[in-house]
Simulated scan of single mutants.
Amino acid sequence: MTINPYIPTSDHLPSQDNPIAYQPIIIRLEDISKVYGKGETAVNALGGVNLTVVQGEYCAIMGASGSGKSTAMNIIGCLDRPTSGRYYLDNLDVSRLPDATLAIIRNRKIGFVFQQFHLLPQMNALENVMLPMVYAGVPPSVRRDRAVAALTRVGLENRMYNKPNQLSGGQQQRVAIARAIVNQPILILADEPTGALDSRTTAEVMDIFAELNANGITVVIVTHEADVASHSQRIIWFRDGKILHSNIAPNDLHQVIRD
């Protein structure tokens, strides 16, 4: 099946107020299902999920615990495979690719940010940020300059040689964001990125995501926090393994939560 990445979908109808509708589709989930286990112990984590996200969007995925949002995130991030359906990432069907190929795609196209920062404690900030470039085959002569630029972009140019235990939680998350962007990905996936941060630091981190998005990077955040989701352009709401709403405006989120 040939996918035309420039056809707007019903979630992205073009208008003067929505020029992003004409951008290429970065994420396309087609009838995605995910089943864990077999027989009587089988758990249907996702059932018939359809979703598109276009280049330059900033989306939040929400839903109650067990709603399927984390499973969807894992599939979008090529960390897991759908049981059925097709997933196109940047117009490439990645649904059935070998693990080794998926690892290359993750490294080059996707930047991950998690609640737990997953920094290597024995390495300083600069070394942590340089690490993804080693796996991407970036020449050693380029790695340091790119890592310095990424850390400067998140405001940590004066903390490059500090190890994680010498940094605050917010600073560690900034290092994690710098690491996520250093390979110049087309997509940032963030799973509860502010869950371990206080409100002030949360605001600072969300400002960084907004700046990255303003510069063209597609951002998808999984969160249970309405305040975090309110920074996005649209909110996708999961319930019982399905998308209940795919285009909630941030201003309408509290009404959806009450319902």
Rank of each mutant, 00 (worst) to 15 (best):
L29A: 15
G63Q: 08
G216M: 03
A178P: 00
N18Y: 11
E157P: 00
Y161M: 11
R200M: 13
S84L: 04
F114H: 11
T71I: 04
P19Q: 07
T2D: 14
I25D: 01
T202E: 07
G241D: 02
Q23G: 06
Q122N: 13
K109Y: 13
N165T: 13
V256P: 02
L13N: 08
S168C: 12
G169E: 01
H231D: 06
R28M: 08
G77L: 03
K109R: 14
R258A: 14
L51R: 12
Q255F: 14
S232C: 13
N107Y: 09
F112I: 11
A210H: 11
R108A: 12
T194Y: 04
G137R: 08
A229K: 00
L212I: 08
A180P: 01
F238K: 00
Q16R: 14
L79W: 05
E127F: 10
M133K: 02
I181S: 01
S230C: 11
E225T: 08
V129S: 03
E225I: 09
E57L: 01
L92W: 08
L187D: 02
H231W: 13
M130S: 06
G68K: 00
T194I: 10
Q172A: 08
Q166F: 06
T83Y: 02
V54E: 10
I236K: 00
S15N: 04
